[in-house]
Design a protein around this nucleic acid. Sequence first.
DNA 1: CTTACCGCCTGTCGGC
DNA 2: TGCCGACAGGCGGTAA
Length: 268
Amino acid sequence: MPELPEVETTLRGLKPHIIGQKIDEVIVRHPKLRWPIPDLKRLEGKKVKDLKRRGKYLLVEFDNGTLILHLGMSGRICVLSEKLPPKKHDHVDIHFANKKYLRFTDPRRFGAVLWADNADKHPLIKEIGPEPLLPSFNGKYLLEKAKGRKVPIKSFVMNSKIVAGVGNIYAVEALFDAGIYPLKPAGKITLPQFNRLVKAIKSVLTKAIKKGGTTLKDFTKSDGEPGYFSFELKAYGREGEKCKRCKSVLKSLRLGNRATVYCGKCQR
DNA sequence: CTTACCGCCTGTCGGC
DNA sequence: TGCCGACAGGCGGTAA
């Protein structure tokens, strides 16, 4: 389940291997991910100009457009230098002139590999809200956006139009840290609460990215998995266990079919 | 415009 | 041991 920190870790691991590299050949074995993979012949002979992240999307930039990658739930990308026979879920290989190649793996195929002539205008990218780690994402911004909205705050922060790339795990953790009840209507949250929430989101994402950084040296191993499972979660997955703050038992509810753990005492 | 809900996939896990 | 159904989950799409 790659969340933003894992995508960021993937980006950092990938960058030194692929920037400036010329593509020799692209092999697509299973063209049906979340959307059909377009014809990637257009990449052959092109050089990777830059690699960026927008929310959980990875953007591989070329002089004629951008390859958009999304890892969905189960996607992984690695760079290999020795020829390994493709396994069942290795859907795309991108071979570079330096004999290394990028391999896109995704068992559940919720991920995406797409092309955009202009990524900024692509429908999946253009509506994405501010990056959570930039200063433009702050309490005042959220307060303004939340005016009159009745959606539960958890759904609100998981809405990519409001803020980019905050998934279930980090929404649960940040709301716990900020002491906000997940079902509280977004429009009823005060500026001090939003300030705390923003601080919590930034801090939890930053911590996870730091953790991910320790896995970078193994990036080219085919089994090198960005490690956020080792990241210490205070609420997510701890239903029925004791709150680390007040010792009462953590409760859970389902919101839009998503596991939502919270402390009934600390979160109001 | 806002909100609620569907469904794409497959590995894993609990129950029998 | 093996079969089977339930479940997880990002997130765009669509219905209300």
